[in-house]
């Protein structure tokens, strides 16, 4: 074993990159759940975003348009979920699971002609001046734009939920939809917007996999990342900055696991793969289940 082979700076830098797709998907789901909706279709929306982003990028030649396409694709799929659960009042858990299965198959169908094609490389985008700082520079400020975007979205969501009136309304809808309705807020509209935001974020996370991380399209590309995103939301007890921590923890374990292997350490891979889930369970026990939004996963209808 030769642990000195692991360069901590590069390890932390690649941790930030590895965490980005699950971070994006998780922050979207956090907003959805704060609005009182449980969407288990994150995996399906992610992979749909991954394939939409890839197809747009290949055809339009622009990764920027690709990410936009991914967000739109994810949001549209989420809208299907929104209409089913909010307007037609179907069960959220069952519909979410169906959305995942549908998304996986739908993405495979869309991606038929795109297997094995190379995506254009997205250049890194070092922040001027800041990226020259030793140690911190390469860890924090030498990434592609989407990594910064992910952190910016977290900060934005945090500020939105904490300081804005719209954020207060969204939280009110999530905590007690009857009260919010009595105050005259349009519960369904708020929730539909939140669901679409969640879909767009999941789509971005998926596109990050197919355009930056891999960068290629293959079936089953997300390989469970959507489920990890769902776990992180609970781990974070529905708070944006804790979610960042959770994403780094989960992303870090995958990177660390490979690094330890390459350095010749003989830890069975299974232990490290288990670690983040054990941590989630521990956090749940210690924090007494955080405090989930009061109306989470409940259907709302004005007449009831």
């Amino acid at each position: 074993m030769d642990l000195s082979a692991i360069n901590p700076i590069l390890l932390l830098a690649s941790l930030m990159v590895a965490a980005t797709p699950i971070l994006l998907a998780a922050i979207g789901e956090l907003v959805v759940e704060r609005a009182g909706v449980l969407n288990l279709g994150v995996e399906g929306m992610m992979i749909t975003g991954a394939v939409c982003g890839f197809i747009v990028t290949i055809n339009a030649g622009s990764p920027l348009l690709g990410f936009a396409g991914a967000a739109i694709g994810g949001a549209l799929l989420a809208l299907v979920f929104g209409v089913l659960t909010q307007v037609l009042l179907s069960n959220q858990v069952a519909t979410g699971l169906a959305l995942t299965l549908f998304g996986l198959g739908f993405a495979a169908l869309l991606g038929q002609g795109y297997i094995g094609i190379k995506a254009p490389v997205i250049p890194k985008w070092p922040v001027p001046v800041l990226s020259d700082i030793p140690v911190i520079g390469p860890i924090l400020f030498n990434h592609d734009p989407v990594v910064y975007l992910g952190i910016a979205i977290i900060a934005g969501v945090w500020a939105f939920l904490r300081y804005s009136r719209a954020g207060l309304i969204l939280r009110a809808v999530g905590e007690n939809h009857d009260a919010a309705h009595a105050l005259g807020y349009h519960v369904i509209r708020v929730r539909l917007l939140a669901i679409m935001f969640g879909g767009a974020c999941a789509g971005l996370g998926g596109a990050y996999l197919s355009l930056v991380r891999v960068p290629q399209w293959t079936e089953g590309l997300t390989a469970g990342a959507g489920w990890i995103a769902l776990a992180i939301v609970v781990f974070a007890s529905w708070r944006p900055w804790r979610l960042l921590l959770g994403a780094y923890l989960f992303g870090g374990v995958t990177v660390l696991q490979l690094n330890l292997q390459a350095a010749g350490m003989a830890i069975p891979v299974a232990y490290l793969s288990m670690a983040p889930y054990l941590a989630t369970i521990l956090v749940l026990v210690m924090m007494r289940a955080g405090r989930a939004p009061g109306s989470l996963a409940q259907s709302f209808h004005a007449s009831r």
Binding site: A5, N7, L10, A18, V214, L258, A262
Partner: peptide, 14 residues
């Protein structure tokens, strides 16, 4: 592909 890319990146970093 995702895992293979990850493994290659780690090896390059080392």
């Amino acid at each position: 592909p995702a895992k293979e890319a990850e493994a290659a990146t780690v090896l390059i970093e080392q």
